[in-house]
Structures are given as C-alpha cells and as structure tokens.
Design a protein around this nucleic acid. Sequence first.
DNA 1: CTGAAAGCGCTAACAA
DNA 2: TTGTTAGCGCTTTCAG
Lengths: 337, 337
Amino acid sequence: MVSIRDVARYANVSTATVSRALRGLSSVTAETRARVESAAAELGYVLPFNASSLASGLTNSVGVVAPFTSRWFFGTVITGIERVLRDEGLDLVLYGIGDAESRTRLFEQMSMRRRVDAMIVLCLPLTKRELAAVRSLGVPVVFVGTRVAGFSSVRIEDFTASAHAVDYLIRLGHERIGLICDDDPAPFGFTTPRQRKQGYLSALHAAGITPLPQWQAVGGFTVAGGEAAMNTLLDGDSPPTAVFALSDEMAYGALRTLRRRRRTVPEDVSLVGFDNHELAAALDLTTVAQPVVEQGSEAVRVLLDELRGRSTTPRDVVVPTELVVRASSGSPVGMPN
Amino acid sequence: MVSIRDVARYANVSTATVSRALRGLSSVTAETRARVESAAAELGYVLPFNASSLASGLTNSVGVVAPFTSRWFFGTVITGIERVLRDEGLDLVLYGIGDAESRTRLFEQMSMRRRVDAMIVLCLPLTKRELAAVRSLGVPVVFVGTRVAGFSSVRIEDFTASAHAVDYLIRLGHERIGLICDDDPAPFGFTTPRQRKQGYLSALHAAGITPLPQWQAVGGFTVAGGEAAMNTLLDGDSPPTAVFALSDEMAYGALRTLRRRRRTVPEDVSLVGFDNHELAAALDLTTVAQPVVEQGSEAVRVLLDELRGRSTTPRDVVVPTELVVRASSGSPVGMPN
DNA sequence: CTGAAAGCGCTAACAA
DNA sequence: TTGTTAGCGCTTTCAG
C-alpha cells in the first residue's frame, strides 16, 4: 500500500510537505504543490482518512440524523445537504431512526461521538435527555425544521404559512373549513403539526369563525390517513366546503376519497395542502410551498460557519414559504368568484 | 478527553482488555466485560473511530453511491440499507452524484478510497473507467438494480416483469398498446429503461402485434415527462387504448393528461405503471410492484457475506416482482370483461 | 517555505 | 483469558 513516504520520496520532499500540499495549505510553493500533486496522482495516492483523522483530531464528516429517508421531504433535504458537504470535501454519515428502538439506541450509545465534526438533525425535536447527549458531543449542531434553544436552526414559519393558507380559503368565501392534522402530541415528538394547526385556528379566529370539532380529523401525515380523514370529515354534520391538509401527502389521500365519493374539486370541496411535494403540480393541488433543498444547503452553510469559527452565537434562519394556487381550490358554489 | 487508559484504570484491566470487551470479542469473561462496560458507560467513553480504524485497518463504514436521494426509489432503498448497516454497527457514508460533474469528481478523486470497507452502488451502470476505479478500491462492491460482471448484484427482472405487464394488457383485449419510456441511451447510462422496453416489445411480438412507432413516447422518468408523452400518444394516429409507463411517476403525469383531456380511465385508456410507488395505491394505478426496502437490506447482507469472507464468488440476487391490478386498467370498451 | 521528530489513541501479536 | 508493547500513517510543532 502506497504511503505518504512513497509520495514524498517520489516528489523529493518531506512527508510534512506532502501532507501540506495535499491538504491545500497555503504554505507551499505552487511549484512544490504541483510536483506533489502529480506524484500523488501518479501513485494513486489519497490521504488516508483514518490516519489523518487521528493525527489532526478531525473526522471531516458531518452526521445527519433523519427519522426517515424515504419520504420526499427528508430525501430532498438530504440532497441539499449532501451537495454542499461534498463541495466542501466533507463526508455525510447518515443516522436513520425509523423507529423508537433505533432512536433510543442512537442516543444511548451516541455512536457519532468522535465520529463526526458536526451534526444536522432533521425535524426532530429532541427530548431533554437527547439534547443533553447531543450537547455532550461538543460539536456544532444545526436543526432543520425545529427551533431549539441554544442551537442554530433552519426552518419555515409553520404557523404563519398555515394561517395564510387558511386565510386564503376564507377570502374565497369559505366558512366551514376542515383540517386534516395529526395526533396531538404527534409521533416522534414532531412539533410541526401543532404549529400548523395553530395557524389554522388563528386564521379562523381572526375571521370570527368558531371551528366545529367535526371539522378536524387525524390523518397521520400519510396518504392512507388523509384518505380516512376525509371520509370522517364528509360524514360529519355540516361538512366543510374547504379542507386544509397539513401535508400534501394527506391531501393526496383526501383527493382519492373525494374522487371515490364523487365529490368534485373544487366545486364541492376545495383542498389545500402543505409542502409543494413533487406531485402536487401533477395533481393540481393548491399548497404551501417551502424550499426544501435550500433548507438542507443552508443548514450546512450555518454549520460551516460554526465549524470554522466564523460564527459563535446560534442563528435561526427562516426561509420563506409561498402559497401556490392551483386548480384544487376555488370559491364555494353559489359565491361570486 | 477520556481515553481507553482511563477506562482501563477504572475497571482495573489493561487497555487491550478494554478494547476487546468493548468490541464484543469473545475472549473476555462475562464478568470482565460487564466491569469494562459499566466503566465505559460511567465515563461516557466510546472507542474513537479514527484511532481504532488506524490500528485495525478497518473503517467500519460502507459507502453508498446514489444518483439521487430525493426520489422515492432511492430514498427507500437507502432506508433498507441503513437499517441493516446500523444493526451491524456499520456507518453509512453517502455519496450523491446528482450531476455529471459530481460524478466525474467522485470517480476521479475516489474520495472513498481508504474511507469505506465496502460499497453499494445504486442503479448506476458504471463506465469501464469507473469500474476500474471502483475495482482498484479493493473492497467488496454490490450493485443494486444493475448486473455487473465480476460483482454481486441485487435486482429485479425488468425484462420479464415488463413483458408480463404488457401481456396482461393484451389478455384484457388491448391491441394498440402504447409505451412511455426514456431516451435511448438513457441519462446516466441507466440500463433499466431499455430492459423494460424490450419486455414491452417482446410481449407484443409474442402476441403477433407489430408496434407502431407512434405508440412510443419519451417521458424521461418524470411526472412532467409522462404528462407530455401522453399528450403525444393521444395526438398520434390510431392512438393506443392502453399505455404502459416504465415508471409510476411517468404514469402520474399521464393520468394528469388524461384527466385534462377528459379521457376516462380505464374506459378510454388503460394505464399500467412500474414500481408500486407509495402513491400508486392512492391514485388507483395498476403497476408492477418491486420490493424496494428489501433490495437495500439484501444488498447489505450480500455485502456482509463478502466482507466477512463467508462468500467469495459474486452473487446475483433477483427479487420477485408482482403485477398489482388496480382500477386504472380494464378491457377496452366493447370487449366482454 | 521546508524538514525532523514526536505524538495522535488505539489494536494485534506475543507472552504469560 | 489477560497484559505488554510495538506499531498503524499521518499531522503538528519547532527549527532552520
């Protein structure tokens, strides 16, 4: 196995110079660097990660903790994260916690200790215990999608965005506006559902509308859940003429129910989702769009600022959302447009 | 920073014993192991990855190369991979190659050299050059979704599955069967599209049907592409009464076109997709289902067998597909059911 | 800007 | 089964 010594000999310099040249340190002549680089290329040499890491104390890796990797939102954030990390020459180590058991295990053993230089946690409000564990890592941590005291975060304004979407339905003339939400408290401790729900309530309140209990149904943030929830809503007393689903995926399920039960959209029921999921356009779904790739890449930028000492106080980056109006929403029948 | 020596002192053993106990080697008394483990827990100690790695020559990491992480298929495979890796105590390092530039960069610098103990490559037929580079890593490599000479693979039978789906349409009574496919050669060098297309052609051929050129349209494996392709198909001479889309996402786009152009499904046009994407059920799409999480976990199992010397010859694991019939397909109008 | 040499903190071989 | 000790292959002082 070719070592740094081979390269040093080949390029007629010391191993220290090889190390410096290959890491791009500025304290090397352009000419020397060129010689070292061509020697390394010639011999097919790259600095072995483990030896460098041991000597320098850095891992050149960032850990990403994600509850799911298969859901569109998470996969898309990860795309944004990965892209910027790789540009910076950092590796992305993925920690999935699909269920309670692996979550416990992850935070008990803290296998990322001394394994990563920094961490990004996706949409996962941590328990006090978990936060303490994460803090004990002693590395910069950025949260995406949730705000956590003492840490940086990148997120959207769930409350405001939801209120705005519901307000749009009110301005269309709707008075009976349903909600497809999640259990409260939500699984995994997600806080997003509650904030979006508060936005819904706030908008109704501002318009002087008192929401009836039968206007709310639990959809569990899945397509199947949205489907069932819409059935519940339609079966209630004085069913809503418009429905706000807290995620596009629940809205897809709701659309299926409406199709099955021969309700036309938006004439019988208007529907608004949340996310601008990749299929929202294909399904003509009005929805609250959030920049997802950008939240990932922005999280890395914030992280790098902390990692490289450019920033020392936690930052809270809020990225903008936008209501995208498509064909699934309109004024209730009998209203002028 | 607490070191292995601190733990050794605390537990009254040598550092070697601490190392053995913490790695779960069998050559340690249960009693000793317990003492070491509690000492480590007490002091919050885990074996630092870089030092262990340098001394042992192993990284305890597996590299995963994926062209996308945001697409459902890839995110889902990664879920399967991650889960098994973590159970085995291995880390997953993600290498995304969303564009040609990052692909080139990855295989030029081979940043995974000495960084991972093994690799999984997702759905990416590599060029000769890239294969040579990967081979030079000297670590086990498993391909998911493509078969590569000299390496193990986990995949489905694209050809057979497609032929079967088209044959189903033929048996329903369809004679004019369209195809929404991809460019040939496909972007990234994907081979899947061609194999599925061959399956389509083969099924038609077996039924004595000569496919007309206007029955084929390019959809680029995206929703928008599927939408456009379906428009093309409908505008052609003697348009098909059934359409086979090589991916569910293209089928979604096709559904949108059909909805917009007031064609009913399946009365006017039957539609069959491929993947059993998470939304296929919600959209009532008949499709070829493939086990996705399982392909990921199976790939890891194959990898572990090679990594641990249990297997030395490449294996080619083919997982089964299944045609899932839903409401988007039926006999052409005028046919008895 | 470059070189010499002393670690970085484990693991593996060997001995007991 | 456990302890002793010599590396693993760089990076980082510190000199020059």
